[in-house]
């Protein structure tokens, strides 16, 4: 499977080392993506990286990826300018089960760049494709200026009630200071009626899951997005195995109930 060529239409820096690319397919129609799926992005000559899809606009046809620079390939992607091209393979994997949220309270819990794969969930609620009884978004980040989609977050208020918590901030920061599990714990979660989508650093997900379970959210209603080394994205290269599962094709979004026994095994 070879990549399709995409052109970068817009590029913006979210904060130093983290940037968002909006791109259009060079030829042909853009692919349709489910919220929570990912693509393999190819920087010419440098290699490919798995990056979750943070937007797939229906109207403008733009594919949106938010990338944090970590290694050689992401550094090569960071150097790309508007008008330049990159390769895209995908979309791959299983996304968020938005259908299940229809008659529930949707609780979105995101940490750091973990907000990226949840952005399409918010947009599907905003444009009416997705529905939930009510939606709360808990977003934890390092600092106020190290949040993704800062200029958009306030507009999301139409669809979600937003609670933000950062590790460090000045006192003029209107949100919380502390870990996201703090406000989560204090919130009145209607456990049995809630469905939770969680994405962030694995440690943050572990603590969030603990709070959710204590609040009576059933394991079958908790979904989380896992990260492992994905190379082929098609279940053929073996790298992203996690117990009996391949993150690339069985995930990256999993129902906690299905993976519960595996989640606590270290070095899996």
């Amino acid at each position: 499977m070879i990549p399709r060529v995409y052109r970068i239409e817009h590029r913006r820096e979210e904060y130093p080392g983290t940037f968002t690319l909006e791109m259009s397919a060079d030829r042909g129609r853009p692919v349709t993506c489910d919220p929570g799926q990912f693509n393999m992005l190819y920087a010419f000559g440098a290699g490919e990286v798995p990056i979750s899809i943070s937007g797939a606009g229906r109207r403008d046809g733009l594919l949106v990826h938010t990338i944090r620079t970590q290694g050689l390939v992401t550094a090569a992607l960071e150097r790309l300018k508007e008008g330049e091209q990159l390769g895209v393979r995908g979309p791959f994997g299983q996304g968020w089960p938005l259908d299940l949220a229809r008659d529930s309270d949707l609780l979105i819990i995101a940490g750091g760049v973990g907000l990226a794969p949840l952005r399409p969930v918010v947009y599907s609620l905003l444009d009416g494709r997705g529905r939930a009884r009510r939606t709360q978004l808990y977003y934890g980040a390092r600092r106020p200026e190290e949040r993704l989609f800062r200029h958009e977050l306030n507009q999301w208020g139409r669809a979600v009630s937003l609670v933000q918590s950062v590790d460090h901030a000045d006192s003029d920061w209107p949100g919380h200071i502390g870990v996201i599990t703090g406000p989560l714990q204090a919130s009145r979660i209607n456990g049995p009626e809630t469905i939770a989508f969680v994405c962030g650093p694995e440690l943050m997900m572990r603590f969030s899951i603990r709070v959710l379970l204590e609040s009576g959210v059933p394991a079958s209603a908790i979904f989380l997005s896992m990260e492992r080394n994905m190379k082929c994205a098609t279940g053929l290269c073996g790298h992203c195995q996690w117990g009996p599962r391949f993150i690339c094709k069985d995930g990256p979004v999993f129902c906690y109930k299905d993976i519960q026994p595996w989640f606590q095994i270290r070095g899996l």
Binding site: I2, F44, G45, Q85, G87
Partner: peptide
């Protein structure tokens, strides 16, 4: 698996 070229007209990837 593939070869690719990059020039003024962009990137071409061939399986």
């Amino acid at each position: 698996v593939w070869k690719a070229r990059s020039n003024n007209s962009g990137i071409q990837v061939a399986e």
